[in-house]
């Protein structure tokens, strides 16, 4: 019906869909890894230097490596820092919520979102030890999520690609 060109087009579409699914999984893994890098950096800063909150978030953002997912995490930290610096009466939780609205990450799941919101709620008050403890607790919460996301990205990502290609091929053959 569609001919050879149509079949090839279906195959390409299937592969693109598979690739998109894979990229989403990779992005989630990168974002979780980025959060963990940033929070580890925060812990050291809280313990050693005790900077102001905007400085802490800016420095933590600089610990993050590049790549889709990681970039969004860094941008959120920077945006939160800017919000607090420009509107000092804004709470840390509100500043982070504003950053989440501005810098969206569709691959982000409720578990990590809740963990980060909880961290930002705790970062806004208490002693240095309490804040450092909050960061450590958040790391513990994110660790299994990151492990799971890595597995999903490595195994599931490959599977998505193969499945996309297969479905595209089948659709192409059926429509030929």
């Amino acid at each position: 019906m569609l001919g050879a060109a149509g079949a090839l087009l279906c195959l390409a579409c299937g592969m693109a869909a598979g690739s998109w699914m894979r990229e989403r999984r990779l992005a989630r893994w990168r974002m979780l890894s980025a959060w963990m890098e940033a929070i580890s950096g925060m812990r050291v800063l809280l313990e050693q230097e005790r900077p102001s909150l905007p400085e802490l978030l800016q420095s933590a953002a600089e610990c993050i490596s590049s790549g889709t997912g990681a970039q969004q995490a860094a941008q959120r930290l920077k945006h939160t820092a800017c919000c607090i610096a420009s509107q000092p009466l804004l709470s840390v939780t509100d500043a982070y919520a504003s950053a989440c609205c501005k810098i969206t990450a569709t691959w982000e799941k409720q578990e990590e979102r809740a963990a980060m919101e909880r961290l930002f709620r705790q970062l806004g008050s208490g002693t240095a030890a309490m804040r450092e403890q909050a960061a450590a607790a958040c790391l513990r919460r994110l660790k299994p999520l990151e492990e799971h996301a890595r597995m999903e990205a490595e195994k599931g990502g490959k599977l998505c690609m193969q499945l996309g290609m297969l479905l595209g091929l089948m659709a192409g053959i059926a429509l030929w």
Binding site: R50, L53, I84, P88, S91, S125, T127
Partner: peptide, 17 residues
């Protein structure tokens, strides 16, 4: 009042224990 104290300290009141 607490928020004002935090803001006046550039959100670093915790470091000034």
């Amino acid at each position: 009042i607490a928020q004002t104290a935090e803001a006046l300290c550039d959100h670093a009141l915790y470091a000034r224990a």
